[in-house]
Design a protein around this nucleic acid. Sequence first.
DNA 1: CTCCTTGTCAACCGAAAGGTTGAGTACGAG
DNA 2: CTCGTACTCAACCTTTCGGTTGACAAGGAG
Lengths: 125, 125
Amino acid sequence: MAADPLSRVFSALADPTRRDIVARLAVGDATVNELAAPYDVTVQAVSKHLKVLEDAGLVSRSREAQRRPVHLEANVFDLMTKWIERYRRQAEERYRRLDDVLRSMPDRAVPHPPADPSPKEGTPS
Amino acid sequence: MAADPLSRVFSALADPTRRDIVARLAVGDATVNELAAPYDVTVQAVSKHLKVLEDAGLVSRSREAQRRPVHLEANVFDLMTKWIERYRRQAEERYRRLDDVLRSMPDRAVPHPPADPSPKEGTPS
DNA sequence: CTCCTTGTCAACCGAAAGGTTGAGTACGAG
DNA sequence: CTCGTACTCAACCTTTCGGTTGACAAGGAG
């Protein structure tokens, strides 16, 4: 299993069946059998999927007699959205700045983006 | 390889090395060797990672002599954020509604969340 | 032209993922 | 107590994944 929480969440949602389960749980809590019904796989397979979702923190399971109602923990989504937003914003910011550069020197050919921090090729004169 | 785009994006970002590469590319475009330098894996491995990111639409590669500058395509993030936001909102909405129910009947024991749409157990009087 | 740098492709390997079947546990109903 | 239901655990199988090594194509640099 992946060590870091972010990897666990992303890889948990990388499976369409698990995303489908999350979608169902957004409507309301459900038992394992209820969740397994729509799919043509065994209940054991769905139980494994739920374990993956649980390890990712996306889902919690309580006891209620012999039922195990599954509950969606939506707050874990923040982990992802924060990561995504960070780099999306950064990339947009960079794009905007590059755009400014292009606008300020419309005559030069602009060989490549100037954002390379490692001048391995020895910056000729 | 995963068929649907959402699975491709999620599983592309499920790997910490690939997330790291995305983080670097948010700063600016880079070549394969530059990207491979920080890691103690071969260039071929990084090339494979880039292929995964490219198949997910997160990255594009252009030709520039024998270099292949890698560029981050941040707009694909929207695919994820839209999916996430949808179910996060839905879950929060449900939670709010449940909260209202609890507030409106503070005396009842509330055996379990009333959001179950499949009354298999025959609703005992 | 020859060499070196950059990068990809192909084949292989071990580990993990997703599925199965079969057995076992926990609990309520009769 | 016995049975049925709901679920999990364990073992196994096949495919995918992340990594390796080795060979190769594409272009400057000398």
